[in-house]
Design a protein around this nucleic acid. Structure first.
Lengths: 257, 257
DNA sequence: CGGGTCGATTGATCCATATCAATGCGGAGA
DNA sequence: TCTCCGCATTGATATGGATCAATCGACCCG
């Protein structure tokens, strides 16, 4: 719903029926993308960003509930979210699943597939979404020519590793309240970086998905939302969240109870 | 104690007193390293491995309990464990800490530092250890020339991301028993790959460190070791572990209780 | 506009793991 | 060889979050 404000004017409205695919794939250049300061081009010189343009030649639309890729799919590209919202999850044989992350515009997905040439998790769109397809072998080639790109790509992967460490910290040593507070603060931060309000946003995922990510049951997540609301820290109405007391939320972190 | 069996004959015994540092740093080449099939050179052609030799020019000894790097240290190199054993951990202001991984010979450490040019976690030796120092800017340079190296380095980073997903799964959706069983099986596998016995090994870390990694308290870890022993799955004597029933351990995984 | 469905909320109870506490054991150093 | 100290074990009890269950509410579709 609010994604429309981010898209470039050449974008086709979501509701449009059939559009020639070429029309969608034609104009997709990093140099004019509003997300370039958050995404792969971050920190590159304008000239280098233009060289990236030749790489990111395709876009792909993914409808809500559909997968961008699934565990086991052969790996060929990484993806930059342009509009929309994704989750990644890993599913065990016995059906249990673990959400390993949520992804918003400007973030890179799919790097899990490089090591084994097959994806190790599922990437599911939580709303109708749009990604830039970055063919990996071409990325590696271009990284050889464009020094800044090589460095930048390494940084992106490294930050993913650091992010994962943070999630381990969350899951391994925080109490339920702390996990949810940290989660909300993290979302808020990422929304701000994208020009949205830091204190008011729409959750794209269900309580169950939040719970899976945080290692909690959905009932616990729901109760904590209610508790935070009673304590005046946030306002909750279904998926709409308003952060009323950022400091209060931060204080939950690290206090023994 | 059992590490001696792996080292090349040019290695100085651990107990030797003072050895000229140059002697230690001189011979450190991937092409003759017994770990080359597990480490960064994995899958590279012999010629490419020789080019790696010029990169990995220094070794560094780290005594038990000392840090290879600490959170906040400026980033300049990644490291390949040659001998010994490390843990990585992240420490919060309030003192809580989370062990994010254990590292054995052939594994690469330090990639967390690339993104911000500073390390985000501590790497502590759990026994007297020895690492190859891989200056990162040189690695990036060489990766431009040696195509296989670039690819291989990306794979190493990607595998780290996938490993982290596995830990999230562990912490987020497994019960205590499952976590410990998965941990033991994982260690076993990694020891086998290094030519050690799959069913008998020495834990280098304390119960507290295992607990921190698995999101459990040390008492819980201890009780579970005892329980597994009673059930005939393993033999435990302090840090010495013998796996008696691999299938039984695997069966713990994924069963609802 | 009304019925159905999926997700969210809330309450009552249970249980896995934490916490608190005491004892034991093995290796290092005198 | 003795002693000390850090780590491990084991027991008793407490509790945070899970589980089970019921109701509610919003949105979608006909």
């Amino acid at each position: 719903m609010d994604q429309s404000t981010r898209s470039s004017n050449s974008d086709v409205p979501m509701k449009a029926t059939v559009v020639p695919i070429s029309a969608v794939q034609l104009k997709s250049v990093c140099s004019s993308c509003s997300l370039r300061e958050l995404c792969l081009p971050m920190g590159l010189s304008p000239e280098d960003v233009e060289r990236l343009d030749q790489l990111v030649y395709a876009r792909r639309k993914v409808k809500r509930g559909e997968g961008l890729y699934r565990a086991g799919d052969p790996f060929s590209a990484i993806y930059a979210v342009r509009t929309g919202f994704f989750k990644s999850d890993v599913i065990l044989e016995d059906g249990r699943d673990q959400v390993t992350g949520f992804h918003m515009p400007g973030e890179i997905m799919g790097m899990d597939g490089i090591g084994t040439e097959a994806h190790s998790c599922n990437a599911i769109a939580l709303e109708d979404s749009d990604v830039c397809v970055i063919p990996f072998s071409r990325l590696e080639e271009l990284a050889n020519e464009v020094r800044g790109l090589q460095r930048q790509f390494h940084k992106v992967m490294s930050r993913e590793i650091v992010r994962d460490q943070g999630v381990m910290m969350l899951l391994g040593s925080m109490r339920a309240e702390e996990r949810l507070a940290a989660f909300l603060l993290n979302l808020s931060q990422r929304f701000v970086a994208r020009g949205y309000s830091p204190c008011e946003f729409h959750l794209r995922m269900t309580r169950d998905e939040i719970g899976s990510f945080l290692g909690l049951k959905l009932e616990t997540v729901s109760r904590l939302f209610s508790k935070f609301q009673e304590d005046g820290l946030i306002g909750v109405q279904q998926k709409h969240i308003r952060i009323r007391d950022t400091v209060g939320l931060k204080n939950i972190l690290g206090q023994d109870r």
